[in-house]
Computed example of a mutant assay.
Amino acid sequence: MKVDILGCNVDRIGMNETLQKIEEFIQSGKPHHIITLNAEIIYKAQSDSRLKEIINEADLVTPDGSGVVWASRYLNAPVPERVTGIDLTLRLAELAPKKGWTFYFYGGAPAVAEAAAENLQKKHKGLQVAGTCHGYISETEKQNLLANIRKKKPDILLVALGAPRQEFWIRDHQKNLQVPVCIGVGGSLDVISGRAKRAPVFFQKAGLEWLYRLMKEPHRIGRMTALPKFSLLVRLKGRRQ
């Protein structure tokens, strides 16, 4: 089941169901695109038809963020919980050694993907990482990256280029790469590498991670203006239903 939030279809799915779906995707061996979708990107999709198309053609779209959870409830089609990019990454890293799944990390500043992979391997014995690459590479290096991913054949490719850039990148290359699971994870690698700090548990549980990020990075305020605009559009849609 899905909920239509401003023309973007979000799966009404929790973490455990998401993990089950991912296992099915890996077993199939066919390429799949997973989007962890937040309110900011839904709002951006209102003026970007290609982005909306990519969201609605993805194989799985999880509710990433309190704004999406709120909107689903307001529209009387509630999702069970948030399934964020970082939480999904951490759960997959926990499962991977038991399942024999391999990862490839792409994105972030130099050394971030490598550090994130190393930290996860320290925490989860037996975690297999097929390769890492930062997001600041030349056009020639990008072709080498694609060739390397095809050669290494990971089960899960985590792309941390920021949304929606990472969604466009996955869409453009997933058929060529043939990776069973491609996920855009935004700033997750920054946190896992230790480069950035995640919001304290209180902020997470209260659905206020956005506020913590804004407090730490005031320059994000321009982006945050999308949240009240998103809320207004959802309320207008709800009244018309």
Rank of each mutant, 00 (worst) to 15 (best):
M1T: 09
K2Y: 10
K2N: 06
C8Y: 12
I13A: 01
I13P: 00
G14R: 15
M15D: 01
N16D: 11
N16M: 15
K21I: 04
I22D: 11
E23W: 11
E24H: 10
I26V: 06
S28Y: 13
G29A: 06
N38M: 14
A45D: 11
D48C: 08
D48K: 06
D48L: 07
E53T: 08
E53D: 09
E57V: 04
E57K: 15
D59A: 02
L60N: 02
P63E: 08
D64V: 05
S66A: 14
S72I: 12
R73S: 13
Y74F: 15
N76P: 07
A77D: 09
P78I: 12
V79S: 07
P80V: 09
E81S: 10
R82V: 10
V83I: 03
L90Q: 12
R91C: 03
L92C: 02
E94A: 06
P97D: 11
K99W: 15
K99F: 15
K99H: 13
F103S: 11
F105Q: 09
F105W: 14
P110R: 11
A111Q: 09
A113H: 01
A115F: 07
A116I: 05
A117W: 03
K122C: 03
K125I: 02
L127H: 01
L127C: 08
Q128V: 04
C133E: 15
I137N: 02
S138G: 03
T140K: 02
T140L: 10
E141I: 04
L146V: 04
L146G: 01
N148H: 13
I149E: 04
R150E: 11
K152I: 01
V159K: 01
A160R: 00
L161G: 01
L161H: 02
L161A: 12
R165Y: 01
I170N: 00
D172V: 07
N176L: 15
C182E: 13
I183P: 00
I183T: 00
G184L: 02
V185K: 00
V185N: 00
S188C: 11
S193Q: 08
S193F: 03
R195T: 12
K197G: 04
K197E: 14
A199N: 14
P200G: 05
Q204M: 09
K205T: 08
L214D: 11
E217W: 02
G222R: 15
M224K: 07
M224Y: 14
L227R: 08
F230H: 00
L232N: 04
L232E: 13
L232G: 05
R235V: 08
R235Q: 15
L236I: 09
R239G: 00
R240L: 08
R240V: 09
Q241W: 14
